[in-house]
């Protein structure tokens, strides 16, 4: 009998909860306390993550006034493309004018555009586009290999655990999102540079050969990763069916 009571109470609570939900969830109405004149990215754009997973860093946008100072209490609304999500999707900026959201990538690899919107005093919408990159299985394998073997030289940023070697090199390596360079090189040449070293394709001998360390599928994964994070985005050459 005691058991029935124990189970009964939560069930009753649930029924009450359902009754309360009849009208659908009511979103709290936010009243902006101020309006900005510009919307800029603070951090978190162009991150790469595994498909369907949350991004490591939050996305932070900032509402500024005409002088470029942060505006507190301005309304910001964000939408994500496809099945990607941002939480919270709407809110008021903090004291320094920033608004921070967490982003979860969609289930298909590719770029997900986040559109952030705020409104100026006249009620005119100001928008900001941010692209986040969802990596498929092969691209994500490439990212892991990049973190172990490549990033020490190809990534200029140092972290506590990984000091960048970029500044020590006579010929500076290309950052992997350097689309202006990588988009001009075909897959076979990138694979050859990784496999046989930079000297194999008139690049610096400071890029050593990894053909004895990485398998062919590892090299393919790295190439696919470089293509995925390229900026401007990489478009595979081929037949064009319609004007873009």
């Amino acid at each position: 009998m005691k058991r029935a009571v124990e189970i009964g109470l939560p069930v009753l609570g649930m029924l009450l909860g359902l009754a309360g939900c009849q009208k659908g969830p009511v979103a709290p109405v936010l009243h902006p306390k101020a309006n900005g004149a510009a919307l800029v990215e603070s951090s978190g754009g162009r991150q790469a993550g595994f498909v369907g997973s949350p991004l490591d860093q939050p996305v932070v946008v900032q509402v500024n006034d005409a002088q470029g100072n942060g505006v507190a209490g301005a309304l910001v609304s964000l939408t994500a493309a496809g099945d990607a999500t941002v939480t919270p999707a709407t809110g008021l900026t903090a004291d320094d004018g920033t608004f921070t959201v967490n982003c979860q990538l969609g289930g298909v690899s590719g770029r997900y555009r986040i559109v952030a919107t705020t409104w100026d005093k006249q009620g005119k919408a100001i928008t900001l586009n941010l692209d986040e990159i969802a990596l498929g299985y092969q691209q994500n394998l490439g990212r892991q290999l990049n973190e172990k073997y490549c990033s020490r030289c190809h990534n200029q940023e140092s972290t506590v655990e990984r000091v960048s070697n970029y500044d020590n090199l006579a010929t500076k390596p290309h950052s992997f999102n350097d689309g202006n360079f990588y988009n001009t090189v075909n897959d076979a040449d990138i694979a050859a540079i990784i496999t046989y070293g930079g000297a194999a394709r008139h690049q610096s001998a400071e890029m050593p050969s990894y053909g004895g360390t990485l398998s062919k599928s590892d090299v393919d994964a790295l190439v696919s990763y470089v293509r995925a994070v390229s900026d401007p985005p990489y478009h595979e050459k081929g037949m064009t069916y319609a004007r873009q």
Binding site: S209, G212, T213
Partner: peptide, 13 residues
């Protein structure tokens, strides 16, 4: 890698 498994020094044959 034969002497130091996991090293990032590439095997350049």
């Amino acid at each position: 890698e034969k002497l130091r498994p996991g090293t990032i020094e590439p095997n350049q044959h």
